[in-house]
Structures are given as C-alpha cells and as structure tokens.
Write a protein that binds this DNA or RNA. Structure first.
Length: 573
RNA sequence: GCGGAUAUGGUGAAGUGGUUAUCACCUGAGGUUUCCAACCUCAUGUCGUGGGUUCGAUUCCCGCUAUCCGCACCA
C-alpha cells in the first residue's frame, strides 16, 4: 500500500496533463490568462460531473424520506447575519495608506498584544495608532480602519443605488434551513426527514491551491437530516458488520491512533457519539465505493474538540488519499439545533419548529381568580389590563372581599363582583421544539478529483512505453461505448454507424464513433479517457450480426450478437 | 498574503540579443494495413501579459497574471 501511495503522488502531474489534454478539467478563462481557483469541466468532465451528481442524488433519495430542493445562490445579507456567516467570526484586515498593501490586523499586532484575535474593530485601530505599527512592505505607519475580511463574494440586488446587499452563498445548507417550513409540511411534520441540494458554493479564498481541491467557485452537495433529539433512533448498523472502517478518533491523549472497526462497534463503544452520524458515515462510505474510490484510501477523522464549531456535538471528516495527501472530501456533523435556532431568533413563528405529543397528557387543574372585564374595565380604565393580568396570577385565592391588590406602585380595592372564582382544567398535550440536524456535506470537485486519481493506471504493454487506462466505474464514465470499424471500407463504416445509433437510443447511454488510425491506437485513445466498452465491427459483423466487445480493464474481447449488445447496454445505467 | 521556483504548439520538452524558433507525441488529410499507440507522404498549430533597456527582446531588467513547493489561511 505504501508503494501504491508513493506512486499516486507521482501520477498527480501526469494525470492533470491528461485531463487537460483530453477535456476533463482545465483552468478557466485560460485565454485571458486564467483566474486562480476557477476551473472548467470540459466535454468529458461535464458529463462525469453530472453522472457523479446523479449517483449521489439517487443514493440519498432511495432512503425514502429525503427530498431534493434547489435554492438561489444569491443570498441576502440578513440570512447570512442570522446564520453566523457575517459578524462575530470575521477577521479584520488593515490597509497601509501609503503602499496599499493589505494585512491581517491581528497578525501585525502579535508582538504587542497577547491575544489580538479577540480585539474589536475600534480596539484594533487604536492599538495600531498607539504602537505606531509599521507596514512590513514600506515601513509607513499610516493605516486605514480595519475592515472585516470577508471570504464571501458580495453583490447588490437591484440595479439602482439603493439595492439590497447580498452575497454568493458560501454553502448550500441555508437553502434547506430556509425551506424547512415547506419540507416539514411536505412530510406532514413527521420526523425524521431530510432534504438535499446540489449546487455551487462560493468562497473568496485568499490563496486557492492544489488544482480543483480548493476552488473559489465549487460544486457541493449537502444533506440536512432533521431528527427529534428526544426520540431514540433505530438504525440497523449490524448489517454492515463485514465492513471495516478506518477511523481516527479525536484523541489528545491517545495521540490520534488509527483504528479499524465496524460502524456498529464504533457507535456501541461511544467513539462515534450519535447513531445517526454513524449511519451516515457508513452510507457515505457505501456511496464512495459505488463511485469507484479505492477503500484502502478512505478514512474517517474525528474533529478535535477545539477544531469543531462550537455548536456541533460530533463531527467526522471523510478523508481520501491522493497526490495531495489525505484530503477531507465529506464532513458529517451533528449540528444540534444551531442552524434552525439561529433563524428562529430572527423570525417570530413556529414554522421552524415541530410539534411533539407528550406520551401522557399533562392535566393541570387549578383555581383562579378570573377577572370580570365588564366591571373592571369601566371602573379602572387604563389600569384594567394590568389588574386583570395580576388577578389571574394570584395563587392564594382570597377568602373575603374586598381585598387589596398591588399593581406596580398602585394599590386597588377589588370587590366581590369584579371576580369570579373558577376551577380551570388545562391539558398539555405536547410542545413545539426545534429539531436537531445531522449534516453530511460533500465537496463534489474533490470527490471527482480522487475518483480520477484512483482510476488512473499505467501498465507496461510492451517495452517501456506506459499505457494509460482510466478505470472509471462504468456507471459514471462520461462515455459508455466506443464503436470502431476495423477499417472504414467494405461496408464496415456503415455497419458501425448503424450500431452506434442503435446504442444511442438506449436511455442514458453515450457512444462515440471513431474510425481513424489503427485499431490499436483507437483502443488506446478510448482506454485513456476511460470508455469501459469498445465495440469492434469487422467483416464477420456484416455476415452474421455479431460484434466483438472489448473490456477496458481486462483488455479482453468476446464476440456477441448485436441484440445481446443492446441488451447489455440497457443494464449499465 | 509571505518566501522560493517556474511560464515556449493540444501534451511533454529543447534552444537563442539578429532572416522564417526546434523536437517527440498528439491532431487532420491521403496511402498502406483484417484486432491492441505499426509504416509512408503531406498539413495545422507555440515563446503568458504589460512596460523598460536595445538598431533589434522569446532571450536581459521590472510590474502584473497564472502554476508548483513551503508557511499562513480555510475546512
């Protein structure tokens, strides 16, 4: 395995050349010099991405209580204030007024202040003024007021000056939270349920690096699974008892030891703290294997306590190994009620809550002093409302009338006809609560990169020339079939054309025809871009309607009839 | 953002202060060839970008942009 790992690091560059050359991925806007952190998916990459998305979506929709939604990428400021993306968590940047260099404010104060990270905007500025901090570039000490360093792209909604400030969403998750009322109504308020969204996210990274690993505009796929924190979950984790996962639990004491265990044991032993998190871990692992990733190169790492967002109770990253090392590609977090609660604070409604019946009704019987409004109103006028409220709260019902009632600083005399002593029975049948959420969040670009890396193989076919095979899973390969006539003559071209067309009529199947250069070269071209099946038409095809089908990974061929081929094609996707 | 390196056809590379920039692979056309990058002929396509020095810059210098490697940041 170590050998394999070393090999992979070498292959990274060769793979990137191949992907660029053949139309999988490439830096975007290259004709204009390129922009860091923005990439294009080409003729093959575009299709690959949509196949990966489709497989991801089907995997979760198949659970039965998951729906797909879609929401705008442009998000008004208020939403991101509520969610915590703007505000308390921002770092500040200072600009040097003489040379226009920009620096992290707290970094420049590191030698002066013990904890510059905690300073407010004003305090930062006064520290700059008082200590005559010098610009590292030009040694000047004239600084602008520190500005929040925002990693979100901002824009304005509306063409006029008074438009509303908005940002390109940094995650798709807010869409699910804001649609919670609709989703909840769709499931008629019965937890657990969830929603997914596939789409673009934007982060204005300071320095995007590592190809498509860290992008400024990226494809994400997030699932929000809402649960009742008081109801125990029942996932049957034992059915995966023959699958060993590599886990790295948070262990400040045990020094991050990797262990191999089943998900059932990990939950039972409390390594994974919540059963639903464990369930999503194994379901995620299952999906990764389906996508064609190498299980040897998958592991889950638990966030350390100090690394975890403060509201999260448990968080595991799925890390995939490739030429950039172990890269986190999926985050599975138990976020408690944080997100919905954050929005709940800004709006006054039960829409973000779920009703829960108590197991047994709570019957409360009490005797109250019920105000008679028709008497109290005319008598006390402006004070009547406060008096009525106070009367209802009296615990020891007075036995004789009149009695004195203190409301604020005034005292009122309550006569017998002003109140009615009543026995009241109320029944508490349940309560509103904010559900908890478990969030698996997938970086689609990162996953695609590793699918390509794990699929990349070089074999020695003859002498020392390397022969490249991209062993993409047949379900996600951008092209399913290549049809080659042995030569473009004697009717073989026409025959190959018509077989291509028959294959194309199979739903979801994409086919290319290639008739130029030698047959060996065409096989090689197809293997390099990961076409799983090559169909070759020769003279015998014209006589008896049989073709040879060649399997990319084994390089072996067999002869079957055209109708067998069509039947085979329907079973791929 | 800091430090270091790099930037030449689609890909990978060579080279130069001076006429028309080199090679391999790839790609296209024609020929040949009856199953794994064969061969022959022909063809298309390149000095990241802006400025400076110079009679002349792809080459030397500076800025910008991008890429790679560390650090930092992010998750």
């Amino acid at each position: 395995m170590l050998k394999q790992m070393a090999q992979m690091e070498n292959n990274g560059k060769k793979l990137m050349s191949l992907l660029k050359k053949r139309g999988y991925i490439q830096p975007a806007f290259e004709l204009y010099g390129g922009i860091a952190g923005l990439y294009d998916y080409g003729p093959l990459g575009g299709r690959l991405k949509s196949n990966v998305n489709k497989m991801w979506l089907n995997h979760w929709i198949a659970l039965g209580n998951i729906v797909e939604i879609d929401s705008p990428t442009i998000t008004p400021k208020e939403v991101l204030m509520a969610s915590g993306h703007i505000g308390a968590f921002n770092d500040f940047a200072s600009e040097c007024k003489s040379c226009n260099s920009i620096f992290r404010s707290d970094h420049l104060l590191e030698e002066i202040h013990p904890n510059p990270d905690s300073l407010s905007q004003e305090d930062l500025f006064s520290e700059f003024e008082n200590n005559l901090i010098k610009c590292p570039t030009c040694k000047s000490s004239k600084w602008s007021i520190p500005q929040p360093l925002n990693l979100m792209f901002s824009t304005t909604i509306g063409a006029s000056k008074n438009g509303r400030t908005a940002y390109m969403r940094p995650e798709t998750a807010q869409g699910m939270f804001l649609q919670f009322p609709t989703i909840s109504r769709f499931f008629r308020g019965k937890l657990p349920f969830g929603a997914v969204q596939l789409g673009k996210g934007y982060r204005n990274e300071i320095s995007p690096r590592q190809g498509i690993i860290r992008l400024r505009e990226f494809n994400m796929a997030e699932l929000e699974y809402f649960i009742d924190p008081k109801k125990s979950t029942s996932h049957n984790l034992e059915i995966w008892n023959d699958t060993l996962l590599k886990l790295i639990p948070d262990g400040s004491e045990s020094k991050q030891k990797e262990l191999e265990t089943t998900i059932f044991d990990a939950v039972k032993n409390g390594i994974v703290k919540h059963e639903t998190v464990g369930w999503f871990m194994i379901k995620t692992y299952e999906l990764m294997i389906d996508l064609g990733l190498n299980p040897e190169f998958l592991r889950f790492r638990q966030h350390e306590k100090n690394e975890m967002a403060h509201y999260a109770t448990d968080c595991w990253d799925l890390e995939i190994f490739g030429s950039y090392g172990w890269i986190e590609c999926v985050g599975i977090a138990h976020r408690g009620s944080y997100d919905l609660e954050a929005h709940d604070k800004f709006i006054n409604t039960n829409d973000l809550k779920i009703w829960r019946d108590f197991e047994t009704e709570k019957v409360i019987e009490k005797t109250v002093c019920s105000p008679v409004q028709s008497v109290i109103g005319p008598k006390f006028k402006n004070y009547s409302k406060a008096i009525s409220e106070k009367l209802l709260k009296i615990k020891n019902i007075p036995e004789s009338f009149p009695f004195e009632l203190e409301v604020g600083e005034e005292t009122f005399l309550i006569q017998k006809e002003m109140v009615e002593i009543k026995d009241i029975k109320t029944v508490d049948r349940g309560e509103w609560f904010i559900p908890h959420v478990v969030e698996p969040a997938f970086g689609i670009d990162r996953i695609i990169w590793h699918i390509l890396e794990h699929s990349y193989n070089e074999i020695n076919k003859k002498d020392d020339e390397n022969y490249t095979i991209l062993s993409l899973n047949k379900k996600i390969a951008p092209l399913n079939f290549a049809v080659y006539p042995l030569y473009e003559k004697d009717g073989m071209k026409q025959k190959a054309d018509s077989i291509s067309q028959l294959l194309r009529e199979v739903d979801g199947i994409s086919v290319i025809y290639d008739g130029s250069k030698s047959i060996g070269r065409r096989y090689a071209r197809g293997d390099e871009i990961g076409i799983p099946f090559a169909v070759t038409v020769d003279l015998q095809t014209i006589e008896d309607e049989t073709i040879t089908i060649r399997y990319r990974d084994s390089q072996e061929q067999e002869r079957i009839t055209v109708s067998e081929l069509l039947d085979f094609a329907t079973k791929i996707v």
